[in-house]
Every structure is written in C-alpha cells, then in structure tokens.
Design a protein around this nucleic acid. Structure first.
Lengths: 124, 124
DNA sequence: ACCCTGTTTTGAAATCTGTCAACCTAGAGA
DNA sequence: TCTCTAGGTTGACAGATTTCAAAACAGGGT
C-alpha cells in the first residue's frame, strides 16, 4: 500500500450518522469532525472537491490548469483533502489520480440532516 | 430589527441545491459556499452549532458555560456563525437567544448529497 | 440616576494558513 | 544510466484566526 492517504481523520472513530441537530455534540466528536468541514471551507479546496466528486476519478494534471495557482499550491490543498479523509489518491505511471471517499461524503451529509431538528418557529 | 444578523453569506446568491458531486463548481459558487463550511470547520463552532440546532432556541448564557473559553471568545465564534448565515439571534431583555437558519442547514445538506455521484469505478 | 449582570466590541499576542520559488522524487523511455 | 515530465516537499512570508483582558453597551431593578 506504500504511502497511501494516511488520513488524519479516522472515519470509524467519528460518530457515524447522528445529525448535528439530533443532540449536542461533545468536544471529542466535534474535534474529530471539524477537520472535514474545515477542509471544505476553502474555495479552492471546495472546487477541487467538486471536480473530483463529479467524476469517477481525475488526474492532477486535469485539476491544476483549472486554477490560477501554482502546482505546489494545488498539491498542498490536495494533501489537506487527503488528510481530512475526503479523498484517496493513487499513482499510476507518471500521473496521480484522485477520487472521493464516498463514506466520508455520506457521513458529512448525514451530519447535516435536518431530520427531527426542532427548527425555531416550527410551531408558528 | 436593528443590528440583526446581516449575514455575509447571501443564501439566495448561492446555487441552491445542486450537489457538489453533480458537476464541477465554478469559482464564484465555491467562494459563496466555502464560508459556510469554514464556519463549521472549527470544533468550538461545530459544537455551538450542534447545541443551537438541537433545540428551538438557546440562550448564550447556556452556551458559554459548556466551554473552557471566555465569554468574548464564545461571542466571537457566534458572530462568525451569524456571518456565515447559519444562525439568527435575537435579544430578549437581558439575554440573547440563538437559533439555526434551517434554509442554510438544508442547503449545506443538499450540497453533500452523493446522489448521482459516479463514485470511482462507476464506468467500469 | 445608579448599579448589576449578560453580551458584544476592541486591541493585542501567539499561532495557523495560503501561496510561491526552489528543490526533490517517481516512473517512463531512450 | 541519463534525461524528461508530473507531482510532491521544504522553507519563507504576508495575512488570517483564535484567544483573552479590558472596555463598551443593553436592559432591568433599586
């Protein structure tokens, strides 16, 4: 497996699926999950994420030219997405391919479920 | 209304509902949405958000003691959540009450829909 | 009018982030 | 082996973020 992702965020350690609005989150949960949102909290990374998530997989060589940024900068952002556990990558010959980690994506979505959230004014 | 929220993120200006994975996001969309994720990208704010979203509304006086942080610091984080358009607040007498903006929440959830995302291998 | 409590604003320090230039590494091909 | 290209890593710097203490502000009560 070599030097694969090594995500800092261990998806299994994260409360899997209880929406943010279901009950107050404790400090540990918050500390485990926040890095994922943080990774999406930069316009460049959000766009990278969107580009990666829109296709089965994509080469860095197709990502970099979409931005007015240096290669090292894109590489840095991709590393953060990796460390957040949001994407995987794989070197194939000369090129490096990225793809999303659907579990992470699904988990984030589940967290934002508004589900039973007693939104203010609901009784109006 | 006075000095109400004045969110920096205008929810109406944000592409409303197309999942991140549906198609590559352009720079403007990303710039509009990233601040919301960024606001959730801090453990303290994520926890605040969760506490606020778990009830119809909550007093700052109930939020502050849940953290080992000064009042001003909590106030600062609440302001960022406000500016991200994620919460509303209202002063009632001595106390200030916060509640979530369900639209913002819903929107974020929609963005993370994995929906038609062609997760790797889809074309195999 | 004065004070008391709850909350936000201001100002400042320490730390973190985004970015680039320069350099290094991995694999392909001659 | 040597060289070429795609990407990642390092080092440095400007600007942003987190945090607190001190001060300001808003209402309520006396």
């Amino acid at each position: 497996m070599s030097k694969q992702a090594l995500p800092v965020v261990d998806l299994n350690a994260v409360a899997c699926c209880s929406p943010i609005a279901a009950s107050p989150m404790d400090a540990d949960q918050a500390a485990a999950i926040a890095p994922m949102f943080k990774a999406l909290g930069d316009p460049v990374r959000l766009r990278l994420m969107s580009m990666i998530a829109s296709v089965p997989e994509i080469c860095v060589c197709d990502l970099t030219p979409a931005f007015d940024l240096s290669g090292p900068t894109i590489s840095h952002h991709l590393k953060l997405l990796r460390e957040a556990g949001l994407v995987d990558f794989e070197r194939r010959g000369t090129w490096v391919w990225y793809r999303v980690r659907p579990e992470a994506f699904r988990q984030l979505g589940a967290l934002l479920e508004i589900s039973a959230a007693p939104a203010a004014g609901g009784t109006a």
